[in-house]
Simulated scan of single mutants.
Amino acid sequence: MVIAFIAAITTCLGRVPAQAAVTEPPEVGAQIVGGQPADGAWTVSLQSQRPDGTYRHTCGGALIAPNWVVTVAACVSPETAANPPTLARAGSLEWQTGGSTAGLMEVIIHPAWEGLFTNAIALVRLDRYLTSPEILPVTVPLGPNGLALVAGFGTTCDSDPEDADCLESISDRLLQLEEKRLPDSECSLNIPPFGELFNPDDMMCMVSADGEAKQACFGDGSSAVVAKAHRGYRLVGLAIADGDEVDPFRPFACSTAPEGSPGELFVLDIFAHVPWIAETIRQRDPAAAERMVAIAAQAAG
């Protein structure tokens, strides 16, 4: 599958550069309601400007080239985001400081996205190269029962997102949680009345790996989902939503399902969109596309 990924991009590029840097975060174990401090700055903080001129974390993304971020379409679309982000901070465990920042120069939303979960992917071209070492390769997909880490800056409460105290509980520091991929047949989105929302071709369902009531929550949208690669970690997905956003019987309880079982996280499968990512970046920025190939090749060993 690694070869398939590299072939998908090199079909567009024609060659693979010999050298490239690759992120190598430290080893992590089971670890943002119920999350633990993250060990790697895998998630880019996309931030919107407030009326007073300050910036606030809006949603996440992942750096896949020095000047390209992949994110969820609803995060950056003017049709769904009341105040779309204009600033990206990468390479920091805190969304307010550290790492490096850049403005958003161009936003490209998948042409087949229709406002729901399928094809809910977008690319953001930054206005300068970032020096962050946390450039994540995409090498192989995550299989059923596979383990991954979701890392986000979202709320640490499990309450009404309109509640001021809940909104102010947004984490200053990146938190992580180990998740396990469910078989598609066990995903609640694959069960009526929500079956039409689930597309197994580009979505995954995940629950906390230890079976406890922990889960990504409000503000964790587009957070990076990473798994171990041959070297360091690889990007396998982006958080789209948790069960509260589609199930009216479990409002504002990110960490649990109605029957008390762990809440589900719905994840965009990045690997499914490699051809679109590669071609879109190649058309606009061939050097960045080549960089992606080199990073993937080195991560794969």
Rank of each mutant, 00 (worst) to 15 (best):
L235R: 07
F218K: 00
L63W: 12
V293S: 14
A229Y: 02
V138A: 05
N199E: 03
G263A: 04
C254N: 02
Q283D: 15
G219I: 00
A164G: 00
L182S: 05
V274A: 03
A30N: 09
V150L: 00
G301Q: 06
I32W: 03
A164H: 00
S45N: 01
H57Y: 07
G61E: 05
A151P: 02
F194K: 09
R181Y: 09
E162G: 00
P251Y: 01
A102S: 10
E245N: 06
M1Y: 10
I295Q: 13
F271E: 11
A8N: 08
P275Y: 07
F252E: 00
G53L: 14
S159R: 01
G40K: 05
A41I: 11
I3G: 04
Q176E: 14
A209P: 07
N119K: 11
D184S: 13
G243V: 03
L136W: 10
P161F: 00
A122K: 10
D184E: 14
F5Q: 11
D210P: 09
A82R: 14
N119F: 13
L174T: 13
V2D: 13
V44R: 03
V22W: 08
E290C: 15
L87P: 13
C75T: 06
F5S: 12
L130R: 14
I109Q: 02
G260W: 04
L142I: 14
S171C: 04
V150S: 05
Q176V: 06
T10A: 13
A229K: 06
S100F: 06
R128P: 15
R284T: 13
T280E: 05
P258D: 03
L104W: 12
L147T: 04
P200E: 10
D269Y: 01
A90V: 14
A278N: 07
M203H: 03
E245D: 03
A224P: 05
A30H: 11
A278W: 08
M206C: 05
N67Y: 10
L46F: 06
P286T: 09
S48I: 10
C217H: 00
I109E: 02
P84N: 13
F153K: 01
S223I: 02
T58W: 04
H273I: 06
V267K: 07
G301C: 06
R173I: 13
A229V: 08
A209N: 10
Q298A: 14
G98Y: 04
L126C: 12
R173M: 14
A20E: 15
Q283T: 15
A7H: 09
F198I: 09
Q36K: 15
F194M: 13
A41E: 15
Q49G: 12
S77N: 04
L189K: 02
A20F: 14
V16D: 07
G14V: 10
P248N: 08
N190C: 11
V274T: 08
G143H: 06
M1A: 09
H57C: 04
I191M: 12
A278L: 06
D269Q: 11
D52P: 08
I9L: 14
V70Q: 02
P84K: 11
V76M: 06
N119W: 07
